[in-house]
Amino acid sequence: MQPEISVKNLNKSYDDGFQALKDINLDISRGEIFALLGPNGAGKTTLISIICGLVNMSSGQVLAAGNDIIRDYRKARQAIGLVPQELATDSFETVWAAVSFSRGLFGKPANPAHIEKILKALSLWDKRNNHIMTLSGGMKRRVMIAKALSHEPRILFLDEPTAGVDVELRRDMWALVRQLRESGVTIILTTHYIEEAEEMADRIGVIRQGEIILVEDKNRLMNKLGKKELRLQLQNKLEFLPPELAAESLELSESGHELIYTFNAQHEQTGIARLLRTLGDLGIEYRDLKTRESSLEDIFVGLVRQ
């Protein structure tokens, strides 16, 4: 199947010589939720801005919904909705006027029923006649999402959609994104909250210093790189690891007060039972134990540090 977005050999250098993107190749399939992760300044927003037409590319090719974003820019852009990172709204317009304006701008005839549907889905219906400047930050963010959805795009870009947004709106937004995906919309989001990518994304791409260093199915990534850890707080300090316990996945903390056992939670035999039995046999007592799963965040930090 033809990818919904196809980026080939994309490069971007700014006038001051800064190379923001280096030979990016990326295919995004129709109907998936793709999360683009990366530290600040890695090039996430630049990549999105090029696809959406806000920044000129230096070289390469981008197809959106099968249309070259430069040659067939009208068709390509009509398929795309963008919610940028920065909160930018007209102050003096009403919510209704601003969202209707966006639909017209993208070449669609007025459709009050559709606008009504979006505003209701985003809990903006009661505010439709309010001037945007009277709204709270979270509400303005909703207005920007409504604007991006006003022309029924096939592809939706959410650049840091939940930065500085309260928990309720974040939940609402996640629900909305899932609903959109069910209706066949492809969603590309960038985020700082790894939790968000973990919760939402089908696939994850990691970008570092202008290069895509990894693109992987989320579940596979978590299985492949995700580990589980068992930490035992010891009653008494251990000077060294007893030979009976010598195993690759077990280590003693530097203070000697903690045993750390790493295991793969996907395996049938985690070895925890055996470990605890051995400890009992050896008379090593512990007063507390906890397990924790490495999150996407750990994986991400590991990748970006490399």
Binding site: C52, R77, I80, L82, D90, S91, G107
Partner: peptide
């Protein structure tokens, strides 16, 4: 105000 992003990303010559 930054709202120019919308015009720049719109299918408009």
């Amino acid at each position: 105000s930054g709202t120019v992003y919308e015009v720049l990303s719109a299918p408009i010559s």
